[in-house]
């Protein structure tokens, strides 16, 4: 039983009118691992998570969570599941303790057990000393921690975390990432979504890259990086460019992708030793000046660039 997949996703489809938000996504998440859905905003991560938590009915396909079908056994799915929504979903006029206590009841906890779990969770999220303050008065990071705490109360076997680190300070982010690893160490299965490649890289056993509703790659970090082959990514900044330099770079032999974002140009090349001088030469020909160059180890951003022709960050 222990080698049974915690989550099996079979060809899920979901569209909102004309907008095909999820188009045939399939993947398996093993028990006790951290599995990341990595993709830019609008890729369909939240829609996928919503279907897997029985909030949205798929147009097609099915999924099993600890063996419970999302189509036929929603209650079974919900009872093994903890969901950390992308948005903070708490009652701001109630205290952290009251929030946890209420949500604990919704997960079926009562009496002494509820009280004990609320105390434990408050300790885990480090808010024991401020537990009796209204959530509305908390900082963004503290709210995020309570938001996570709520879904831990009933000790779920599987936990979904939808972009839990968006919009918070680095310190809170660090503590959240640490707690995700701690959950895995306790034997929980974590389905994690993010658009930060570093997070996916740091946390995950397996990563699925999503774009435009489709899963474009899936595997371990190393497997994914191999997709880029021997390619290297070079990040450059240009001074006084009218766009012609970038066009010229695309035509250089050995350059597979060029993507510009916020003033930085990411170039994927087969061999940086051969290509780099040609990049300078082209810049000179168009009277532009390269002001910085960085040669990067192949990473998930390179993979995304390789697979989509676009940079991951939007």
């Amino acid at each position: 039983m222990s080698n049974m997949a915690a989550i099996e996703v079979l060809n899920l489809y979901k569209s909102f009118g004309e907008n095909q938000a999820v188009q045939g996504v399939s993947f398996d998440v093993s028990q006790g691992e951290i599995f990341s859905l990595l993709g830019p905003n609008g890729a369909g991560k939240t829609t996928t998570i919503s279907m897997l938590s029985c909030l949205l009915r798929p147009n097609e396909g099915d999924a099993r969570v600890m063996g419970h079908s999302i189509r036929t056994d929603a209650m079974g799915v919900k009872s093994v599941l903890g969901v950390v929504p992308q948005e903070i979903a708490l009652y701001e006029d109630l205290t952290a303790r009251e929030n946890l206590s209420f949500w604990g009841k919704m997960y079926g906890l009562r009496g002494l057990e509820l009280k004990k779990r609320v105390g434990e969770v408050l300790e885990v999220i480090g808010l024991l000393d401020r537990a009796n303050e209204r959530v509305g008065k908390y900082s963004g990071g503290m709210k995020r921690r309570v938001n996570i705490g709520v879904s831990l109360l009933h000790k779920p076997k599987v936990i979904y975390m939808d972009e839990p680190t968006v919009g918070i300070d680095p310190q809170s982010r660090r503590s959240i990432l640490d707690s995700v690893v701690a959950l895995k160490d306790q034997g929980m299965t974590v389905l994690y979504t993010t658009h930060y490649m570093e997070e996916a890289q740091e946390l995950s056993n397996h990563i699925a890259i999503m774009d435009h509703g489709k899963m474009i790659a899936c595997g371990t970090h190393d497997e994914l990086v191999k997709l880029v082959g021997g390619q290297t990514r070079i990040d450059l900044t240009l001074h006084m460019d009218d766009g012609k330099t970038i066009d010229a770079w695309r035509d250089i032999e050995g350059v597979t992708h060029v993507a510009a974002e916020n003033g930085t140009i990411a170039v994927l090349v087969n061999d940086s030793n051969i290509v780099l001088p040609k990049l300078f030469e082209a810049a000179t020909n168009h009277s532009a000046r390269i002001t910085s160059v960085a040669i990067r180890e192949p990473n998930l951003e390179a993979v995304f660039l390789h697979l989509t022709g676009r940079a991951l960050r939007d």
Binding site: S53, K78, L90
Partner: peptide, 14 residues
Amino acid sequence: EEHTLPRLFTTPTS
């Protein structure tokens, strides 16, 4: 709108 209703729907509550 405050996302607590969808969250209620993710708990095992009919």
